[in-house]
Design a protein around this nucleic acid. Structure first.
Lengths: 349, 349
DNA sequence: GCAAGGTGTGGGAGCGCTCCCAAAAAGAGT
DNA sequence: ACTCTTTTTGGGAGCGCTCCCACACCTTGC
C-alpha cells in the first residue's frame, strides 16, 4: 500500500537519489525532471517514511513538551492549553511535531523513556517546582537540547523563557500603593514553586519602591488554590490591624480570598481591595471583576519553541557553541474593579 | 556517545541477536546470560534506537491526539488538559507515547503531515464539529486506526467514545420539571457541534418525558461563550412570557446568562433558575454556584486511548477484523444552588 | 551408542531512507 | 574538434534494529 522512494523513482523513470533530491529540495536537478517527480509524488500521495529518515539523519523532527508532575491543580486552569497552542504554532512553522510527556511515574524511568531512544530532537520543560532540577541536571549533563519555561533558581546558566513574575507583582503593589492604600498584605503561592517565590519577591520589592515595609502578619503562604486563598484571607482578616488591600499570587487565590471577605461580611473593594495574578477567564467573570496581572502565556510557549528549534537548526549546521539565554517576557496590569480603582472612596484614610 | 545493540553485545560477550532477545523479553535465552546482558544494558544506560526499531517493526509506539480547529473558545476551558491526562495515563500503561496535533492549517496538508510518513500507529480524533467528517472519512478510506472522542452524525459505523450529552441534558430538564417549573427554556450551543446538537435533543426529549412541549421562543442558539449566553438570555428575558428556568448548554453560557439576569435586575434562582453543562471550575466559583451536568472527561480520554491501543495490539496479533464500537459514558447531575433546589420557594407557581 | 527432538546462539538480510562518490551529460574555452 | 570544467544522475554503503534461518549444543528414549 505505502510506497517507497524506490517505487516512486521507478514510476518517474529516474533513480532513487534523484527523487530524494527533489523531495528534499536539493539543488542540481533539472527543472523539468524536478517537476515531473513532484507530479508523481503528488499523484501517488507519497510521503517519505519518517522512521527511515530519522534513522539516517539522526533527526526525528519531533520535540517534546515535558511537564513534570501533572498535578490536577495546574490542570484546572487553562494555562497549559494556551501554552501548547503557542508551542504548536512554532512547531508548525518549522515543520516539527510535538510530543507530550506528562511525568507522573518514576523520574529515572521517565527520563529514559522520553530522552533516550532518540524519539526527540529536543525538549521544552515546563518547570514549575524548584525540585525539577533533578530532571534538568540530567538533561544538562547529557548535553540534550532543551529550553525551560519558567526558571530554576539553582541554574541561571541554562536557556529559559519566563514571564516577569517579579515585576508583575511589583506593579500590582505599586498600583495599590498609588491608590493610597498603606496597609498592603499578600497571600503568596507555595514557595516550592518559582512562580510563588518570584511573585513574593516582586511584592516585597514593590513595597520597598513605594517606601513601605512589610507589616506583621501581612504575608501568609497559600497554595494557588481557591481553598488556600479562602483560609489565608481568614487569617489576614483576623489580624488586629486588617490590611486594606491584598495582593494574591494567583487569581484562584484571589477568588478564594474574595469569598472569605464576603463571608466575613465585608465588601471588595470597599473594605478590602484585591489584586490577583494570571488573568484566567474566571478573573473577569467574578463579581466584582478582578484586577490582575496578565502573563503572555501563548507567547511564552511560542518563544520557547522558537528558541529550541533555532538552536536545533544551528547545531545541525555545525554551529557548535550556543550560549544560553534567559528571556523574560513582560507581564501586564489588567485594571478591573476589585482593586478599587476609580472609586471615589479611593483616597480616604 | 550513544551505544548500539552491537556494542552492547560486544561488551556482554554475546551476539547482537541475543541482546535483542533479552531487551525484547523473548524466550530461549539462558537465565545467566539474560541477567548479564541486562546488567550491561543497565550500567551503560542503553536504550534501543526508536527510529531503527520503528523502521523494521513498522510500529512507532506513538499515537496522536488530533484536535481539528484549535479554537480559542475550546481552549479557554480546562477540557483538553483533563482529556490529555486521561489519554496520557493510558499511554503510559501501554508504553506508548503521545503526539499532539492541533490542526489549524490546510486540512490536506495537515493530513499528510500527520498521518502519512508513519510517525503514528493510530490517532485519537477529538471531534467537535460536524464538518470534521472530511478528516474522518479520509482516515476511514485509508484504513488508518483511530478512535473518535465525540461523535460524527454521518458515521455511526466508526469506533467512538462520547459523553452522554443527550441523557445529561434530559436529566437537567427533568430536574427542573420535578421542582415544579413549567416554563423551561434552553440556550443551545452552536448546532454545528455535535455536543450542541445532542444537548438540544436531550433537552427536547427531557421536556417530552416531563409531559411538556417547547414554548414559543424558548429555544435560542448560543455559541458556548459567555458573551453568547448573555445575549441569548437577554432575548429570553424580553419575551412576553418569561421562562422560569433555563437550561444552558454549557457552563460558560450559563455564566453569561446569569449576568444577563442580574443586569435585568432579576435574581438567580428566585426569578430565573439556571442549569449549566460541563462542571468547569468556574461553575462552583460563581454566585450562586451553578447546578450543572458533569461529564467524565478524564475517563473519556482514558477509554478512547485504551480502545485504540487495544485495537492496535490486536491487529498486530493478526486479529484482522475489529468491529467498531460506540461507547457512551454517563453524565451526572451536580446539584448546587442556581437551579433553586432546596428553596422554600420551589413549588410556588 | 545413536537418531530424533528440543534449546540456545550467531550471523545474514533487509526495513526505507540519506549521503557520498563515481560516471555520464552538458557547457565553455581554446 | 578536443580538453577542461561544471552540472546532473545513478548506485553502493550503511544508519541500528528485528526477523529468519542455520548451526551448535544439550537432552531424551530406544
Amino acid at each position: 500500500m505505502t510506497l517507497t522512494l524506490e517505487e516512486i523513482a521507478k514510476l518517474a523513470g529516474v533513480s532513487r537519489s534523484t527523487v530524494s533530491r527533489v523531495i528534499n529540495n536539493q539543488p542540481n536537478v533539472k527543472e523539468d525532471v524536478r517537476d515531473h517527480v513532484w507530479q508523481v509524488v503528488r499523484e501517488q500521495n507519497y510521503h517519505p517514511n519518517n522512521a527511515a529518515r530519522a534513522l539516517v539523519r539522526r533527526r526525528t523532527q519531533i520535540i517534546g513538551l515535558v511537564i513534570p508532575q501533572a498535578i490536577k491543580a495546574i490542570f484546572s486552569d487553562p494555562y497549559f492549553p494556551v501554552l501548547i497552542q503557542g508551542i504548536s504554532a512554532a512547531c508548525v512553522e518549522c515543520h516539527y511535531q510535538l510530543m507530550l510527556s506528562l511525568i507522573t511515574s518514576q523520574m529515572s524511568d521517565a527520563y529514559r523513556r522520553i530522552i533516550r531512544g532518540g524519539h526527540l530532537d529536543g525538549v521544552i520543560v515546563a518547570s514549575a517546582f524548584t525540585d525539577d532540577d533533578v530532571f534538568i541536571n540530567r538533561l544538562v549533563s547529557d548535553g540534550f537540547p532543551f529550553v525551560l519555561i519558567g526558571r530554576q533558581p539553582q541554574r541561571p546558566d541554562i536557556t529559559s523563557v519566563d514571564a516577569d513574575n517579579v515585576h508583575g507583582a511589583a506593579m500590582a503593589v505599586q498600583h495599590l500603593a498609588r491608590q493610597g492604600y498603606t496597609r498592603i498584605a499578600t497571600i503568596t503561592g507555595p514557595l516550592t514553586m518559582t512562580a510563588g517565590i518570584d511573585r513574593r519577591d516582586g511584592f516585597l520589592s514593590g513595597l520597598r519602591t513605594a517606601g513601605m515595609t512589610l507589616q506583621d502578619g501581612f504575608m501568609v503562604e497559600g497554595d494557588f488554590t481557591e481553598q488556600g486563598g479562602y483560609e489565608a484571607m481568614q487569617r489576614l482578616l483576623s489580624l488586629d490591624v486588617r490590611p486594606q488591600a491584598v495582593f494574591a499570587a494567583s487569581d484562584m487565590i484571589a477568588v478564594g480570598a474574595m469569598k472569605a471577605v464576603r463571608a466575613a461580611g465585608l465588601r471588595v473593594p470597599e473594605d478590602v481591595a484585591l489584586v490577583g495574578f494570571d488573568d484566567i477567564p474566571l478573573a473577569s467573570a467574578v463579581e466584582p471583576p478582578l484586577t490582575t496581572i496578565r502573563q503572555p502565556i501563548e507567547q511564552l510557549g511560542h518563544t520557547a519553541a522558537s528558541i529550541l528549534l533555532d538552536n536545533l537548526a544551528r547545531s545541525q549546521d555545525g554551529d557548535g557553541n550556543i550560549p544560553p539565554q534567559r528571556i523574560v517576557l513582560p507581564t501586564e496590569l489588567v485594571l478591573r474593579e476589585s482593586c478599587g480603582f476609580g472609586m471615589r472612596y479611593k483616597n480616604s484614610r
